[in-house]
Amino acid sequence: MKAKIRERLASVPALEAGFRDVAYIVDRRIATTVYLAHHLEKPILVEGPAGVGKTELAKATAEYLELPLIRLQCYEGLDEAKALYEWKYGKQLLYTQLLKDKLDDIISRKNGFQSAMEKLHQYDDIFFSWPFLEPRPLLKALQEKDGAVLLIDEVDKSDEEFEAFLLEILSDFQVSVPEIGTIRAATKPLVFLTSNNTRELSEALKRRCLHLFISFPEPALEREIVLRRVPGISERLTRQIVKFIQDVRELELKKVPSISETIDWARVLTILHAEVLAPALVRDTLNTFIKFEDDIAVVAEKIHQLTATAIRQ
């Protein structure tokens, strides 16, 4: 298994081709970053506008390497109990109830309080052992024997404390559970952190990661992505769609359409059996890639001009 992964991460071109096979088109920089992350054993911090495929990158990597993808969605108030591990309190309580008779036996046969205590001490660790531990995503990722792809999504949404807590895991790939001891990663997982920059991440976290910035793709790359992602779409329509979207990105909008929206639009157009773009068609389907009323007004005004340049492609 490990040999297979090593082989798949042997070189940057191999990675590029591999991503292509799982229908995720990357430019060279992304492939280089993943390659380095594996070889330097460092997490990747992925930043970029919404919808350029940050989360998708982790999924594609997992698919290509045939590793399990373990995802931790961050939100405000996320803490260790939800991210790392928790004791199964319910199970512990239930077991103590079930074993009550047993416990009575153990304790009551002895006469002295002292000796009963001593006897109990021999058993108390039972309730804080692996069967009662509920591993959460981070611990799960460390426990995977063959390694895993760990996706810590939208890390900027979590609190600063959680970020600080992540540092130990990200630099040493180990965590300590006081009752059990330190748990080291069997195989170091490949870690992706994504951020939308709702707040600036700390220097310490950035320092420990490779930093990848994914921006909107070049026309050629975007065409390739659409062709790959939307089966049955014609070359000509793709060309027009991409040109249109790229021009829309130049306008002053609240939220410019991203790749995921390009793909959505392309899907909608194929469902409608469109062969070429037409102003009326564009107007009807505008809301698939533009999500604000004000923005729709801006684009609608220029629809004829934009469609005309796109068709000329």
């Binding site: 930043e47 950035k206 930093h211």
Partner: peptide
Amino acid sequence: DALAVSLAKTA
């Protein structure tokens, strides 16, 4: 690319 990824941490 390798240097940009490991050294620079903002766009």
